[in-house]
Amino acid sequence: MSEAVTSGGDAFVREGGCRCGAVRLRIRARPLLTMACHCTGCQRMSSSAYSLSAAIPSAAFEVTKGEPVIGGLRGASQHFFCGHCMTWMFTKPEGIDFFVNLRPTLLDDASWFVPYMETWTGEKLAWATTPAVRSFAALPPEDAYGDMIAGYAATWEGGDMGGRGG
C-alpha cells in the first residue's frame, strides 16, 4: 500500500499496518517520545531482545482498516493485535488516555525511528544495545517525562528527524 508522508512544519502523517495487511493505521502527529523496553514481558511479547514504541497522541492515531483484537496480557493496559496474523500493533497504557504506544516498525516507512529512551535495562539481555540517549533500570520517575518529551521534540526541531539525519 502507498504511504502518505508529509513532514514539514506541524504536518507529520505516516501509514502502516500489520504483517498480513488486514489492519491498517494512520498517525497524524510526531511521537511525543520514542522508546525501547527491555523488560522480560516485552521480550516475550515481541520475541526479541526488546520492544520498540512511539508514543503517539491519541487524537492523531486511527485504525483505517480492519479491527484489532486485544491479546497479550489482558490486564488494565490493553495490547492490540491483528486478529489474523497476530502482529502486536499497539498498546493503550492503563490510566493514560492521551497517547497510544505504537510499534513503529509497523509503519510503511520507519527509517526515521530511533529510540530516545530505553526502560527496564535491569532486565535487558547483556548484548542488547540501543542508541537511546536516556536509560533507566526500570521505569523513569514520573517527573522525568516532561524533560524527555521536550528533549525528544528538540531532535525534530533541529532537523534531526528524531535522531536520524534528514
Rank of each mutant, 00 (worst) to 15 (best):
141 P>Y: 09
122 G>C: 05
82 C>F: 04
45 M>N: 12
113 F>W: 07
92 K>V: 05
127 W>R: 12
161 M>A: 15
150 A>P: 06
13 V>L: 03
13 V>H: 05
163 G>V: 01
93 P>G: 11
163 G>I: 02
119 T>H: 03
6 T>K: 12
51 S>A: 15
150 A>Q: 13
116 Y>K: 05
10 D>Y: 06
34 T>Q: 00
78 Q>Y: 03
44 R>Q: 11
126 A>Q: 12
108 D>S: 10
83 G>A: 10
34 T>F: 01
30 R>K: 15
43 Q>D: 07
141 P>L: 13
124 K>L: 02
88 W>Q: 02
147 D>N: 14
14 R>Y: 03
14 R>D: 00
85 C>Q: 09
34 T>N: 02
77 S>K: 08
129 T>I: 06
121 T>M: 12
69 V>M: 11
151 G>T: 04
103 R>C: 05
68 P>M: 10
102 L>H: 02
159 G>P: 03
133 V>Q: 11
40 T>P: 02
90 F>S: 02
116 Y>L: 07
47 S>C: 09
30 R>M: 08
22 A>I: 06
139 L>C: 09
78 Q>D: 11
75 G>E: 12
31 P>A: 00
34 T>E: 00
26 R>Q: 13
65 K>Q: 15
45 M>K: 11
17 G>D: 07
37 C>D: 10
86 M>Q: 14
16 G>R: 01
6 T>R: 13
142 E>A: 15
138 A>M: 07
108 D>Q: 12
147 D>V: 07
73 L>Q: 12
91 T>V: 14
119 T>F: 06
148 M>V: 06
143 D>M: 14
32 L>T: 01
13 V>I: 15
41 G>Y: 15
6 T>A: 12
152 Y>R: 02
121 T>H: 10
149 I>K: 03
4 A>V: 15
46 S>W: 08
156 W>H: 06
120 W>K: 09
115 P>N: 11
43 Q>V: 07
65 K>W: 08
108 D>A: 12
146 G>C: 07
135 S>C: 09
136 F>R: 04
52 L>R: 05
2 S>I: 15
42 C>P: 01
94 E>Y: 13
82 C>H: 04
144 A>C: 13
28 R>S: 14
114 V>F: 00
137 A>T: 13
33 L>W: 02
121 T>S: 10
30 R>D: 02
147 D>M: 10
5 V>P: 01
161 M>P: 00
23 V>T: 07
143 D>N: 15
74 R>W: 05
9 G>K: 14
27 I>Q: 01
55 A>C: 14
118 E>D: 14
73 L>S: 14
63 V>N: 01
42 C>E: 07
38 H>M: 03
122 G>A: 13
114 V>C: 05
44 R>F: 05
144 A>F: 14
87 T>M: 03
40 T>F: 10
27 I>L: 07
32 L>F: 07
142 E>Q: 14
53 S>W: 06
58 S>F: 05
143 D>F: 12
158 G>A: 15
12 F>V: 03
9 G>L: 14
70 I>F: 12
81 F>A: 01
117 M>C: 08
